[in-house]
């Protein structure tokens, strides 16, 4: 292992940096696959973060806390659903308004909990396995939400492409008029997809306030909702690639911090640009095949569905 001791801790750091992005990204992916564009990820994550934190502080029960975070995200998503699906408000603007609302309401709920620490989410520790060199801490030393994030990605992938329900959801996203005429409830299915997106963003937020940095601080998402949004485009709407994108983005962010600490002779601002530029470059490389993206991008995204039409 000589000279490579740093690899394991770096990977561990990348995992925690990427996990909230994976959750928020995979949830929004399902929402978008159903043809709905919700730009309020940031607001839903904040609601999840504060609710999970408050619940953990008051009850000490982390399962309950994560569930509460998911519920809070769903509550926000429900608001979004009522506005955009039932009242046919513009999705882009409503999503942004949801973020403004989420920043405010999370600050309001959390104001008595600022500056209070909470115990970090427990990490797995299996005698024998977790102690294995290299793979031990990486494979067997994570907290439950990290494993859950992988599970959710695979579950969503299976659901979307291997089940009939997934096919219907994609149909609703690709051609809501056709789906409607076959007799599917476009609005109902979109509600479910939006709520799922909210729940996942909520859990992503809960991961921030319970595991990544176990505390509550106003606006602690610091723009991660936007990165999650970009990751879906990056992943060309494929669940597995959301995972790849989140780990790539997280990885480059961590590596540039390491490069700085190692005294690399470049301005820190230039190094900080790297994750964003790299994401663009990789997108350019994978975007060349237009037909492949067309195949996966939901055609009806952001479009309002009029049931009467």
């Amino acid at each position: 292992m000589n000279g490579f001791e740093w690899v394991v801790p770096v990977i561990l750091t990348v995992i925690t940096a990427a996990t909230p992005l994976v959750f928020a990204g995979i949830g929004e992916l399902v929402t978008e696959k159903a043809g709905v564009l919700n730009l309020g990820i940031e607001g839903m994550m904040l609601a999840g973060a504060v609710t999970a934190f408050v619940t953990a502080t008051l009850t000490g029960n982390y399962i309950l806390a994560v569930a509460a975070g998911a519920l809070a995200g769903m509550f926000m998503a429900f608001l979004f659903g009522v506005l955009t699906l039932s009242l046919m408000a513009n999705q882009v603007a409503t999503g942004l308004a949801l973020t403004l609302f989420g920043i405010g309401i999370s600050a309001l709920i959390g104001q008595d909990f600022v500056g209070e620490p909470v115990k970090a989410l427990e990490k797995l520790n299996i005698a024998g396995l977790t102690d294995l060199p290299v793979i031990g801490p990486i494979l067997f030393g994570q907290d439950a939400l990290v494993y859950l994030s992988f599970f959710v990605v695979f579950a969503v992938s299976w659901f979307l492409f291997k089940t009939k329900a997934g096919l219907i959801l994609r149909a609703v996203g690709d051609s809501h008029d056709a789906a409607h005429s076959i007799g599917y409830s476009v609005i109902g299915i979109r509600y479910l997809a939006v709520l799922f997106g909210g729940a996942m963003s909520g859990i992503g937020g809960a991961y921030l306030s319970l595991a990544y940095t176990p505390m509550w601080a106003e606006n602690m998402t610091a723009g991660r909702g936007w990165i999650a949004l970009a990751l879906i485009v990056f992943a060309t709407w494929k669940p597995g690639l959301v995972l790849v994108g989140a780990y790539m983005f997280g990885g480059i962010t961590i590596l540039q911090l390491h490069a700085q600490a190692a005294g690399l002779d470049l301005p820190s601002q230039v190094l900080s640009m790297l994750p964003y530029i790299a994401t663009i470059v990789v997108l350019v490389i994978i975007s060349k095949d237009e037909s492949r993206i067309r195949k996966h991008a939901p055609a009806c995204i952001g479009k309002i569905f009029h049931p009467a039409a």
């Binding site: 608001l79 408000a89 603007a93 609302f101 405010g104 600050a107 309001l108």
Partner: peptide, 22 residues
């Protein structure tokens, strides 16, 4: 009034304006 309340209210105003698109 804390900034949090003004943020909540601002979000609400926007919700209504957007909802009235119906």
């Amino acid at each position: 009034m804390p900034v949090a309340v003004t943020g909540v209210f601002q979000g609400m105003v926007l919700f209504y304006l957007l909802a009235c698109d119906v």
